[in-house]
Design a protein around this nucleic acid. Structure first.
Lengths: 336, 336
DNA sequence: CTGAAAGCGCTAACAA
DNA sequence: TTGTTAGCGCTTTCAG
């Protein structure tokens, strides 16, 4: 690979001249004649600035880390895709990391930043991980933006408008005439779960209703947890006629369990889930969902971390645009 | 961040001593006493080797690029997951890139390698991209491993046993008594499509059957292409009683189109698709599929590129272990 | 307008 | 066994 020196030799100038020209330095007062000669030489040699050399000198890599607990989750792929879009638009690249559930990702992130492999990190914590696991990083002032989570005392997060999403889902069921509505949500300690449940309760209260505590579960977002939740909810004396499920993956589990239990959807039970994904439109019946802007959240997270890097101050963002969107399919119908 | 020099100062030794100890150099003949002192100092300072410094010196990054056309495809996420597993096990990291359809990813890869951001690249080309788009890279001898594709003259690829997978799917339909079997495959120029179609034909021939050319389409692997394919196949005078679909995403489209056309699955039409994914078990009816080892392909691709980096010679691998596996669900039944 | 030179953090050849 | 030093490729200050 050609180096600056090679280009300089070929153009018959010094390396510093080449550096100034090729990196478009603002104060590069270079005669247009030598500028042209340098550019020509660079093109002929197919010169590319060496990443390590530049990073070593400037202490910046233009790489952002994305640490996720699970790369196969359909929701997260949308997020990754959005992050990739924005990162590319801003001239950065994405380094992928994974946080296994045990180690919380704190060490992965610390390593990424500590070794100078990335300028900053976006992290989606696993469901079972508390943000406090990252406290040492926060304390060190590391450029970290959390996705779907917040932690007191640390500025740097991007979250969805979970409450609005849950309200939209619940309101849809209310408009369909349902009154005995259950809620299947995530683990009680998680930020998103709390906010979605709050949205559910807000809507119910506004309708003058109160959900039966036996119809509310907080078992998690995974399919098998959705299955368990439905089993629990439907075994009481007066099962609900509808459920709001706080996550599409759990909803897919709910669907499977309903089939196993001989509960017909939507005839016996209406379902609306928060989150949409292309998996939801291929279930049977196709799921009515509230589409949350995951792709945009990926973009926003990148913007947040870059803002932090360039301006020095973190941001706590709520992605409200596009707003949560009700996608009516066939899993929820009017109560009869 | 602490540097080697900081550690050296704290331990009262030279930087080279620290370097030798901390990077476990084989010929590091260091007294155990100073070794201990160095290790202690490093721990106390939370020393991490600077990535750029090391990369600049050694011309290696221990980062491998993974360039994909589409990060949201459920199949590819499995691949990414496998790659991440192996990369981590080998002490490397994954840098994500995306090849938009237009530019074939050649420039992305060239940049990744040319700038020294990665030691090598694994690339999954888009369906519409020919491997020849990478010829300049191959000519330059760049460490590139193709996934799901091969190119004459370039050694460095990992592919699935597509033929065996297609045979397994077709044989299942034959065993169920079907004789008029169609094939819905990918674009004719793609490597995987050719091999899967070949497997289909092999099985048919072995059964003494010959597929009606009108029942064979090569429209692509995407859902809407699957829909179009089914429409075309089912409009003839004697539609097939079963189809082998060469990709699960296309099969999901087939399912949707069948519903739109009033064709009952599996009563009127049996479907087996090549590829399994967690999306397949949640369709209605749940899809009978042939599970291809995508996760393992990700691992194998990483091993292939690392082999290339360490031994200098490329490898062309076929992932045969685990073998393609028939997953019987409910979309294919005995012909009656 | 252009060039020389220092130095980012690290490794390794060479010296002591 | 340990230390000194050159140099990887780049940016940037300072001289000219």
């Amino acid at each position: 690979m050609a180096t600056l020196g090679d280009v300089a030799a070929k153009a018959g100038v010094s390396v510093s001249a080449v550096s100034r020209v090729l990196s478009d330095h603002p104060s590069a007062r270079v005669s247009s004649e030598t500028r042209a000669r340098i550019k020509l030489a660079a093109r002929e040699l197919d010169y590319r600035p060496n990443f390590a050399g530049r990073a070593l000198k400037s202490a910046r890599t233009n790489v952002i880390g994305l640490v996720m607990p699970d790369l196969t989750n359909a929701l997260f792929t949308d997020l990754i895709d959005g992050a990739e879009d924005e990162v590319r638009a801003q001239g950065y690249m994405l380094l992928l990391g994974r946080s296994d559930e045990q180690r919380a990702g704190g060490d992965v992130i610390g390593r990424l930043i500590g070794e100078g492999r990335v300028d900053g990190v976006m992290v989606q914590l696993g469901d079972a991980i508390r943000p406090t696991a990252l406290n040492n990083l926060f304390a060190a002032g590391s450029p970290v933006t959390m996705i779907n989570a917040r932690q007191d005392g640390h500025v740097g997060s991007v979250v969805l408008d979970d409450e609005a999403g849950a309200r939209l889902a619940t309101d849809h069921l209310l408009e369909l005439g349902h009154e005995r509505i259950g809620a299947i949500t995530g683990l009680p300690a998680t930020f998103t779960s709390q906010r979605r449940l709050k949205g559910f309760r807000t809507s119910m209260r506004a309708a003058g209703l109160r959900a039966d505590p036996a119809h509310i579960t907080k078992l998690g977002y995974l399919p098998h947890q959705g299955r368990a939740a439905l089993r629990r909810i439907m075994t009481g004396g007066r099962p609900p006629t509808a459920v709001m499920v706080a996550n599409v993956n759990a909803a897919i589990g709910v669907l499977a369990e309903a089939r196993a239990l001989g509960i017909r959807v939507p005839e016996d039970l209406s379902i609306v889930s928060v989150h949409d994904s292309w998996t939801a439109e291929n279930t049977w019946p196709p799921l009515t969902t509230v589409k949350m802007p995951f792709h945009e959240m990926g973009r926003t997270a990148v913007r947040a971390i870059i803002h932090r890097l360039q301006k020095g101050s973190g941001v706590d963002a709520v992605v409200t645009d596009p707003a949560p969107l009700l996608v009516v399919r066939e899993s929820a119908v009017r109560l009869r």
